[in-house]
């Protein structure tokens, strides 16, 4: 739960003086994950890297080379000229993004979705909302397996999945059709399973998963909100 609070740690600094902040804070996030052990830290780092690397490369190329109005060339590679304004913009956006994404990943690697939804229900999310999230997460593997089975079945009926673009486009409906029709057909039973367990009973529900929210955590949350407010004011105040 504490992890969620890191989201507040997003400084919206707008000039070069703030460039060093995001990396420092991301290291802080890493330290927080490490409290949960080495494996989560590695998982967090690896996922963060693979998620952000293509975006960084793309940012550097697109904005470094083509940032509108940029003139100051700082690095010339053959016909390509990287410009200062573009790279600065890329670094700012990239740093900000890294922080937000990093914070989200802290939340995801340390908190199980079930705990997260249970916590959200405790603070007022309708149980139906929690159901939607968890059911989707748990349905995914089964539906992926079905997609595989459908591809197998339709190929066995002579459907070619390779060939000219037109031919491949024609294979779309025989694959999407069974996926959707079959899934809609099952919706009835899934709805009945919910009804059979009194999910729509018009009375207050209880919950087995209760989460502890200590005074220290509450204090921490308020401090973070305060800190963000200060950062925001400090960076936006007239200079």
């Amino acid at each position: 739960m504490l992890a969620a609070l890191l989201l507040a740690l997003v400084p919206w600094g707008r000039d070069e003086r703030w460039l060093a902040v995001p990396p420092l804070l991301v290291v802080a996030q890493g330290a927080l994950v490490a409290l949960n052990g080495r494996a989560p830290l590695l998982a967090w780092g690896r996922r963060l890297f693979w998620l952000m690397a293509p975006i960084f490369v793309s940012l550097a190329l697109v904005q470094g080379l083509f940032y509108p109005g940029a003139r100051t060339v700082i690095w010339q590679v053959g016909p390509l000229s990287f410009k200062r304004e573009g790279l600065l913009f890329a670094t700012l956006v990239g740093g900000r993004l890294l922080l937000v994404v990093g914070a989200f990943m802290v939340l995801l690697t340390t908190t199980h979705p079930a705990d997260l939804t249970a916590a959200l229900v405790q603070v007022g999310l309708p149980p139906e909302g929690a159901y939607l999230v968890l059911a989707a997460i748990q349905l995914l593997p089964r539906m992926q397996a079905r997609a595989q089975a459908i591809m197998a079945a339709q190929q066995a009926r002579g459907l070619a999945l390779e060939g000219a673009p037109w031919q491949r486009a024609r294979a779309l409906l025989p694959l999407v059709g069974p996926l959707v029709l079959g899934a809609l057909h099952e919706v009835d039973e899934r709805a009945m399973a919910l009804e059979a367990r009194a999910f729509r009973a018009p009375r207050p529900k209880t919950s087995l998963r209760t989460l502890h929210d200590s005074p220290a955590q509450r204090l921490g949350r308020w401090l973070l909100v305060l800190a963000s407010g200060i950062v925001l004011t400090a960076t936006r105040w007239p200079r």
């Binding site: 139906e128 159901y131 939607l132 059911a135 989707a136 349905l139 995914l140 539906m143 899934a183 809609l184 099952e186 919706v187 009835d188 899934r190 709805a191 919910l194 009804e195 999910f199 729509r200």
Partner: peptide, 12 residues
């Protein structure tokens, strides 16, 4: 309930 059961299926 039918709509409720439909949404996660459609998400997936």
């Amino acid at each position: 309930t039918l709509t409720l059961a439909l949404i996660p299926v459609a998400v997936v």
